[in-house]
Design a binder for these strands. Structure first.
Lengths: 171, 171
DNA sequence: TCCGAAAAGCAAAGATCTTTGCTTTGGCCA
DNA sequence: TGGCCAAAGCAAAGATCTTTGCTTTTCGGA
């Protein structure tokens, strides 16, 4: 039931469908439109719910190469490859489009924060000087997401450049 | 005619209207819905057009205080204050929501790039070591826009912190 | 097993959107 | 002035969405 709905939304977003409405989703999911109208206030709410579910699936493991620079670079590249995929990019845009007011929690950011903490923690244990978690979020994660959301091109060297900039801050 | 339409869209976006459709815009603007259907493919296209017009109105002058750090800080604060206004934030989100594929040009970014160039140019003329324009875009502008688009809180010290981080890169 | 509440389906009515052909208006230039 | 053309208006038909009351199903707990 719920799974069918999520799948339907995922397919529609993936196809870049121009009109994603409750009736359309319901038909694809094989459920009654009324069900959707009753459970979600509007399509945006459902969209965000599915987007968050898709974007926070933590199948990603944080690299552990023994070097902070390499960990960050690989991690940033994994993220870049992930969120530049058309489906993910559309999810991100659909998600922010549904934002109406300042949010107190952002699951995506929280996930990244935990991952960054892990990288930093390991680096410090090795005795490396590392940037703060906030610096990583502001200067690696934020620019990456910014580029994706604004549909600006993200070339392969971009993530590496961001990492080098951040490391330059603490040297 | 066009002005009335733009104004209507601006008002609706400003009010956070939940449903912004051609008929609704037309009524507010005092024009016939058919006119809108004929001129724009969909509401998103019109929305983006108005958003870009609103977001690139260059009424902003770039600070010239004689110090790079101060120029950057004031400039970043001006931007932060500007784009965190609810209307502007909604415009930004509406704009990115309308993005369907990688764009070759982004007026907002181009405007910021020019402003950053101006600040950097003046700093270098004074003999100060300055970050690159790209560094400023990636590490000051991008995080600010990222926060606004994702509806994350932007506190007053945030812009200042970003500036300090960027300056730390080149010292 | 039976009951009851919550969730899902159904159907119909009403609202809203979207398209279309045709008419009207408003400049622009010969 | 008159005619032309693009743009805007109008109205009607059809599609799509949204709401609502009611029925049916589902799924525990008694």
């Amino acid at each position: 039931m719920l799974a069918a709905i999520y799948t339907a939304v995922g397919e529609l977003v993936g196809e870049g469908a121009d009109k994603i409405s409750f009736p359309v989703i319901a038909e694809r999911a094989g459920v009654n439109p009324t069900t959707l109208y009753r459970r979600w206030n509007d399509v945006g709410a459902l969209l965000e719910e599915v987007a968050v579910a898709a974007l926070t699936r933590d199948g990603e493991s944080v690299p552990d190469t023994g070097s902070l620079e390499q960990d960050l670079t690989e991690w940033a590249n994994i993220i870049a490859r992930d969120i530049t995929r058309p489906l993910r990019a559309r999810y991100l845009r659909a998600m922010v489009a549904a934002r109406l007011e300042i949010v107190s929690r952002c699951l995506v950011t929280e996930t990244r924060r935990e991952q960054a903490s892990e990288v930093v923690r390991r680096a410090r244990e090795r005795g490396e000087t590392a940037p703060t978690v906030s610096q990583i979020l502001d200067h690696i994660i934020a620019p990456l997401y910014h580029h994706v959301v604004f549909a600006l091109p993200v070339d392969p060297g971009y993530a590496r450049r961001l990492v080098r900039d951040v490391l330059a801050m603490v040297h």
